[in-house]
Design a protein around this nucleic acid. Structure first.
Lengths: 348, 348
DNA sequence: TTGTATGCGTTATCAT
DNA sequence: ATGATAACGCATACAA
């Protein structure tokens, strides 16, 4: 007959105590004499007993799972290498503590709020990681009302009861602008993500303040982070009266699309136009010219976010963790500003 | 006081029956009179009772979750838009049946077999989707031994007790080769994925047989699907005695890297070299020239895979589902073969 | 056709 | 201080 795995009852019987006491011994709770505890643990070891996750889940109300809701448009998210590394980082921690990562995808047919609610029903997850923070993000109140623990990636623009883990996106953009300024560029532009997304806004603001700091003529264009809009924005900028000599993109994906646009117009990169990306994707290193880009340690971000969320689930106080600054890797897509006749006369 | 949600006991008491009967009525099991069943369901509706997932999970041994293990190297997978669309498709089905998707990532520090085992311990998932099938894939025996239900993406090269959902990768490659043949190309090459991966092998074999069918001189190079190896393989081919006039890549990522290599050598695409990708990524449409590519309906694949897996979990017989053929989208990266002096004399 | 007992780990309550 | 007991929520084998 198929040997059933041992249960707490087997251990209790073998050790000559009650089920409750076995549980107390296992969980290091007071009220068990050292001697009894040792005997119980020894019996458990002999029998090879480990408590059933499902039974624990029933009696504690915990699911031992954490949720990640992806809400961006498919095209944009699919190309974002951030998520795979980030998820690997989450798993580095979760797999060590017996947690599991539940992935949910919000689509046009399945609203984001519905997706969160679905995870909260029956407490399918103990907590969630909230990414791509938006202005006055309605998800934060929702998650709070649903009774889920949470950690946000980036600092929200309002008070929340949640912990946050963030990197200084602004520092990465600042480094890119300084690099371009050092190369002699005077008219630069930023192709930003949606201003309603906090990290996109942070990058835009950092771009504008860095441009001011270095005395540059600057313009920003808002996009949805997609290659399509990145290409369109690039075209619009190059069609302007005084086109920029350098463009700082808010992701590699748009930068590569921008590269295509520049080439179609016969512009040399970086001869006529310098380009910087963000994310430092693998493919960015193999296009021609190889992309100068800003990199964040996504895996470490995932590890820290997971640890922070687990702390929150265990009832720790909210904390705001700040990670190392992103770094700029200079490759071939940035070079000295062209020395043509057009001065830096106009803003737009 | 915080009103507790109603339990099966409340329903039983209110309906004047036992807990067991409520359970039978809810699950449409025989042995309950139509009249009693109706009364029980009515009471349940009035009380707003829904059975506790955790209690169900404990008593049935099901977890109401399915697992997806990602095992490819981070760089490759991150750039693969297939997965996001595929996952969205999985969720289309899972979210409708109260299932949840558990994502696990195998990394150099956490072997694939360990990852599967982690999902099987305590039956954290009822079944798994096995992607990127390999030759004599050891995961299939492992999954079987772990007692998990499973569905494979693609048809394994050995008998398994599992269902499969597949697309005819070969048809996509065949279409690409025919397209190139029609354009007059006679020396073509294929930059393939690892031959140990069944879909990569299928594509290579389809390439070779299509090349033979059209009387072309063909060469294949094996890579790991990464941009780095795609670039290296492209360089090696172009350095050969009789370089190909067209290259069929096994993914867009490598095709874009190959484009970079060609450009660095001053080759015009498609003037001197035609290029086709696979996956039809968004970014491929915005590089210059825009990529001719083969597309699969990944979301539909996900939906069908989810349905098939749920069937397997419920004990249905194994089935082998075949999806629609992939389609070739012609853009700018393919054109007439160059009419230079070199004949099609040599193979590789 | 319907009721009962059992299983799973945790914890509130009770008994030494 | 130390330990036992019962209840929780659901499904199901079995008894009636």
């Amino acid at each position: 007959m198929p040997q059933q795995p041992p249960t707490i009852t087997d251990v209790a019987r073998e050790a000559g105590v009650s089920k409750g006491l076995v549980s107390f011994a296992l969980n290091d709770r007071p009220g068990v004499s050292a001697e009894t505890r040792a005997r119980i643990l020894e019996v458990a070891r002999e029998l090879g007993w480990t408590p059933s996750l499902r039974a624990r889940s029933l009696s504690t109300g915990r699911s031992f799972a954490c949720g990640l809701v992806l809400g961006r448009s498919p095209d944009v998210i699919a190309a974002d290498p951030f998520f795979h590394s980030f998820i690997a980082g989450l798993e580095d921690e979760f797999s060590m503590s017996g947690q599991v990562l539940v992935l949910a995808v919000a689509t046009p047919g399945r609203q984001e709020s519905e997706t969160y609610r679905g995870l909260a029903v029956d407490k399918r997850v103990d907590g969630v990681i909230v990414t791509d923070l938006r202005a006055h993000d309605p998800r934060l109140e929702l998650v709070d009302r649903l009774g889920l623990a949470a950690v946000t990636l980036g600092v929200p623009d309002a008070e929340t009861p949640f912990s946050s883990v963030s990197v200084d996106d602004g520092a990465g953009i600042h480094a890119a602008v300084r690099h371009l300024s050092d190369l002699g560029h005077r008219r630069i532009a930023h192709i930003a993500g949606p201003d309603g997304m906090l990290h996109a806004r942070t990058r835009r603001q950092a771009f504008e303040s860095a441009a001011a700091e270095f005395g540059l003529v600057a313009a920003s264009v808002e996009t949805d982070f997609s290659a399509a809009e990145g290409a369109a924005a690039t075209g619009a900028l190059l069609d302007g009266d005084a086109p920029p000599t350098a463009i700082v993109y808010s992701n590699d994906h748009m930068a590569i699309a921008g590269l295509g646009v520049a080439r179609r117009r016969g512009l040399s990169v970086p001869g006529d136009l310098s380009i910087t990306g963000y994310d430092d994707t693998e493919i960015g290193r193999y296009v021609n010219p190889a992309l100068t880009s800003v990199a964040t340690d996504a895996r470490e971000w995932g590890r820290v976010a997971a640890r922070t969320l687990l702390g929150a689930i265990e009832g720790h106080d909210a904390v705001n963790v700040r990670l190392n600054e992103p770094t700029l890797t200079v490759r071939e897509s940035t070079g000295p500003a062209p020395t043509d006749t057009r001065g830096d006369r106009r803003d737009r």
